[in-house]
Design a binder for these strands. Structure first.
Length: 489
RNA sequence: CGGGGCGUAGCGUAGCCCGGUAUCGCGCCUGCUUUGGGAGCAGGAGGUCCCCGGUUCAAAUCCGGGCGCCCCGACCA
């Protein structure tokens, strides 16, 4: 009954709410090491489902998995000028091993471009050896100043795809293709709508020719960069001598791409879908989709209701839902805990559907089916419960995406906005603001300085305004490109 | 790295100013009664009061020095 059973609400303190949801839903916990977290089974289960699906999508687009070392020779990082400038300040460096000082310090990878392209250089001689399409699932370390569970930790889990191609255009096509894969995943599986587009020079990856990004809007109207895909051009191939002989007999440097998403997406999931009761997990990513809570009074009822709950579970499991998925069902028949307490707990954890089964229901051959997303309850016949549950899960998955997209659009501003109004919005409730930009880095920097808002992306065509902005948000000169502005995580 | 806050049982805390028996809630264990939206009663277990040093007859409390974590900034997926 005490206050510690209640969550801080999103409107009271979004940041506190986020931390509480992550901790209380047991997604993760703080570790003994500053800035590092322990991903607990309920959080890791979501990440595993993300991995499974993404891995399938990578394989379907022709990629293979491999694994490269955690340690990178310091000299490797220094070979690409922008890359070292971007990452050196945030690396962890191993100087000793086996009690001895190392000849050359080893960097704990902040990302693996350097070591991977050094290996590709060894493997590629001819255009016939290309393309190389490799992905690795790995951990990386970036020595961040300020950390937050899932969103920014010293060590995090991710995948990084690294490809090498014969031509610029082929690399460009790959970078765009993988951005599309990310978007499909984020919208189709996470029910998290994203705006895609290109990063500005100031915001692009250190060492890239161009960076593309998926930007989601969190419930505090801040942007979360959820996935990036880079066309690296020939920057790394030149640094690592990744050359090949062309069909015509000449020597060319290969064209590279890299692309990644991380456990940060779990944080994005929380901040996109969570509500004041806790987490809401989209069915496709939920380690448990349906929880069955049996309710009883007498011992006689107890036996009967528990048995029925397990029978329902069996019948649901037997039913194929989508290929090759099966319903993931859990029966919560713990004793000594009242049904109401169980409801709160499963709601906090975000399980999409709850089935309540009591003696009164059994007498009517039914169960009560409750949606986590809307709270809606209805009775369903045990005869058709498999279909009903599967249909409802599909509906919840769709509804969550639609709702999130609607929320994003409600907090997006298009059409002429004055700079004063823009500042007001950024200092207030925040928004995605689509506005003109003259292309001058000084305007970009000044806006960042004054409002903490950055250009999230130069949005892809489908996200651009029907009526393109004519002047720069900051200086009023003619706009050369439409930009999406927001404060970001 | 600057600013702020905090380290007391698994978690959250009171006590600290003004030194003297370590407080309460949640959780946990046992038993009984309960179970359709956070159960009740009874009993019980659980503590290097962050660490080191100092003052004192006596330190969670006062003094000095460390360490750690969280939040807010600057930097970043």
């Amino acid at each position: 009954m005490a206050d510690d059973k209640k969550l801080t609400t999103r409107s009271e303190d979004f940041s506190a709410w986020y931390n509480e949801v992550v901790l209380k839903a047991e997604l993760a916990d703080y570790s003994p090491v500053r800035g590092c977290m322990v991903i607990r089974p309920r959080g890791y289960g979501i990440w595993e489902r993300m991995q499974q699906q993404l891995d399938t999508m990578f394989k379907d687009t022709g990629h293979e998995n491999a694994y490269f070392p955690l340690f990178i020779p310091e000299s490797f990082l220094k070979k690409e000028a922008q890359h070292v400038e971007g990452f050196a300040p945030e690396t962890a460096v191993v100087t000793h091993g086996g009690g001895k000082k190392l000849e050359e310090p080893l960097i704990v990878r902040p990302t693996s471009e350097t070591i991977i392209y050094a290996m590709y250089a060894k493997w590629v001689q001819s255009y016939r050896d290309l393309p190389i399409l490799i992905n690795q699932w790995a951990n990386v370390v970036r020595w961040e100043m300020r950390t937050r569970l899932f969103l920014r930790t010293l060590e995090f889990l991710w995948q990084e795809g690294h490809t090498a191609h014969v031509t610029h255009d082929e690399a460009e096509e790959e970078a765009r293709k993988m951005l599309g894969v990310y978007r499909d995943f984020m919208e189709g599986w996470m029910a998290m709508p994203v705006v895609t587009g290109m990063k500005t020079e100031a915001e692009k990856f250190a060492g890239a020719l161009r960076t593309y990004s998926c930007e989601g809007m969190m419930q505090d109207n801040k942007a979360l960069q959820a996935g990036t895909s880079h066309n690296l051009g020939q920057n790394f191939s030149k640094a690592f001598d990744l050359k090949f002989q062309t069909e015509a007999g000449g020597i060319e440097y290969a064209w590279n791409t890299s692309w990644g998403v991380s456990t940060r997406m779990v944080g994005g999931l929380v901040m996109t879908h969570g509500d004041d009761k806790g987490l809401r997990v989209p069915p496709l990513l939920a380690p448990i989709e349906i929880v069955i809570v049996p309710i009883w009074k007498s011992d006689e009822d107890k036996g009967r209701v528990k048995a029925a709950a397990h029978l329902i579970k069996e019948s649901l499991l037997a039913r194929e839902r989508r290929v090759p998925g099966r319903l993931r069902v859990h029966v919560d028949d713990r004793e000594g805990r009242k049904p109401g307490a169980k409801y709160y707990e499963w709601e906090l954890r975000g399980i999409p559907v709850r089935l309540e089964v009591g003696p009164r229901d059994l007498d009517q051959n039914q169960a009560i089916m409750v949606r986590r997303d809307t709270g809606e309850k209805r009775a369903v016949s045990l005869a058709s419960i498999g279909e009903d549950a599967a249909d409802l899960l599909h509906l919840i998955q769709e509804t969550m995406l639609i709702d999130a997209r609607e929320r994003r659009e409600q907090h997006s501003i298009r059409g002429g906005i004055t700079y004063d109004r823009f500042r007001e919005v950024m200092d207030g409730e925040g928004a995605f603001v689509y506005a003109g930009w003259c292309g001058d880095v000084k305007c970009e920097a000044a806006i960042k300085e004054e409002t903490k808002a950055t250009i999230r992306v130069l949005p892809d065509e489908e996200f651009r305004s029907a009526d393109p902005p004519k002047t720069c948000l900051k200086c009023g000169r003619a706009s050369t490109v439409e930009a999406l502005w927001a404060r970001a995580y």
